[in-house]
Amino acid sequence: SGTSEVYTPAKQAWLPASKGKGLEIMGTFNRKQGKPQMSMTFHNKAMQPMTGFAVQFNKNSFGLQPLTALTIPTPLSANQSIDTCLALNTRGAIQRMDPLMNIQVAVKNCIDVFYFSATIPINVLFVEDGQMDRKVFLATWKDIPPSNEVQAQITNCSMSSDQATNRLQQNNIFTVAKRTVDGQDMLYQSLKLTNGIWVLAELKVVPGNPTIQLSLKTRAMDVVQDIQKAYTEIMQN
């Protein structure tokens, strides 16, 4: 899409009707008004109305938990579907998951309790105050050893460095400085996760070249792979 906005993955089938005794849940994660949230569609494919919906999360890597109760107008009639958003916070119990961004969810209704796993896109945990002070950025960049730097290429990205800056900023990845060296734009960026982990990045953008070089530096190497994935998805979508 040509329009730049907050990146939200398409809804996925988290609970197929065949495993939910007729309840199908399609869902995705996004971030709205400074909070992560789950956006879901509940579809009753059973032949009886459904009532008594509730949701609970297992412990997870970032302590995500529902901020409010699930709001589903009941009864959910046979063949009816309803869209719902569940605001989340990160003050829940923490347990490192493998994969890191996996979350186990239980949904209850009048028929049974159902369990499914979902993958949280890490960018919904990028906070709004993730712009690192420039002086702190330089010191941190030098302080993190080269062994903690991971490079990757983002392909098929026909974006100028200014477009990249804007798109990333809408997703709470902030450009701290920009320099142009030999026609190559170098962007120095920062982001902060809800648990206080900082990630520093350098983007090398050559005008007209659809491949962008991404270098990440962080002390928390566990998150690097997911951050790379987030950059790729934000910049390709």
């Binding site: 330089l138 030999d182 120095y188 090398k204």
Partner: peptide
């Protein structure tokens, strides 16, 4: 935003990491 020392540090960082 207008600290010339910091501006210079970023320029040096970018130059040191540029792939011509």
């Amino acid at each position: 935003e207008d600290d010339p020392d910091l501006d210079d540090c970023f320029s040096k960082l970018a130059e040191s990491r540029s792939n011509p």
